[in-house]
Nucleic acid binder design. Structure first.
Lengths: 124, 124
DNA sequence: GCCAATGGTACGAAAAAGGGTACCAGCGCC
DNA sequence: GGCGCTGGTACCCTTTTTCGTACCATTGGC
C-alpha cells in the first residue's frame, strides 16, 4: 500500500512540527501582526489596533496573548499614565523572520500577480 | 505618529498579499495536506484520509476543494471502478514548495526543540 | 443476491473563532 | 468635576469551521 519510499513513519514524524506550526499560525490576524511588529516596528497596542483594519479590540488582545503564549512576542508594560504597552519579538520570534520574509515574497509574486507593491521588495 | 521610516503606506501595501496568504493557509489541515501531497506523494483521497489522523471525510473533501479553488492542487478523476481520484500540485503549488520546506525546517528546530525526527532533515 | 471498495454528498450538532458593546483604572488638563 | 487618553476585561451573540453519521453509485467476486 506504500505510495513511494517516503510514505510511512517518515511522513508521520514530520507532522508533529507541521501541525504545531499550523496551529500557531491559524487565526485571522497572526501573520499580519507578526509582520507589523517585526518589520515595521508597530509595537504598541493602539497602533496595531489602528493598522489592522476591521479587527476589534478584544480580538487583538486575544491574538496578542496567544502569540505571547506561543513564545513569539514579549509584552512589556511601562508604568506610566496613560499606560504604555509594547510588544516586541522574542528570540523565537526573531528566528521566524526569514520564514515570514519568504512567505511574503512568495505571496507578492505568486498569490497577487496583478498586485504591484509601489515600495519595492521586502525590507532587509 | 509614525513609529519609524517603514510605517505608513509601505506597510499597508504588504498587507494585501499577507492577508491573502493567511486566508489560504487557514484551516486545520491545509499545510499538512500540502506536505503529504508534495513531498510524500500521498495523492489519493483514501490515502490522505488514512494519514490525517482525526480528520473526517467531509472535512477532507472541503479542504481539498479549497486548495483546488485556490490553485494549489489539481484534481484528476480516473473513470475506473471503483473510482480513483488523484490530487497533484499545480504550477502554483510547486512554486510554494520552498516556502513549505523552510516552514518545516524552522518548525523542527524551533517549535519542537525536544522533538527528534528519526529520519533526518527534510527531503530535497 | 449480497458484500466490499472508492470517493464522495447531505444534513445537523458541536466547537472554535471573531465581533460588538459596556465598563474600568489612573492621571493630567481646563 | 468632568473629559480624554491608553490598554485593557467581561460578557454575550454571530459566524465560521469542524465533526459525526447516514446515505449513494458503480462493478467485480462469491
Amino acid at each position: 500500500m506504500a505510495e513511494n519510499k517516503f510514505s510511512g513513519p517518515e511522513a508521520e514524524a514530520r507532522c508533529v512540527p507541521m501541525s504545531r506550526l499550523q496551529a500557531v499560525l491559524s487565526g485571522k490576524w497572526k501573520i499580519l501582526i507578526l509582520w507589523y511588529v517585526a518589520f515595521y516596528k508597530v509595537q504598541r497596542f493602539g497602533a496595531l489596533l489602528r493598522r489592522l483594519d476591521g479587527i476589534t479590540q478584544s480580538t487583538l488582545t486575544r491574538q496578542l496573548r496567544e502569540l505571547e503564549a506561543d513564545g513569539f512576542l514579549r509584552r512589556t508594560v511601562y508604568p506610566e499614565v496613560p499606560p504604555r504597552v509594547e510588544y516586541t519579538l522574542t528570540g523565537l520570534g526573531e528566528s521566524f523572520l526569514p520564514v515570514l520574509q519568504q512567505m511574503l515574497a512568495w505571496s507578492e509574486v505568486h498569490l497577487c500577480p496583478g498586485y504591484v507593491n509601489p515600495y519595492g521588495p521586502a525590507p532587509e
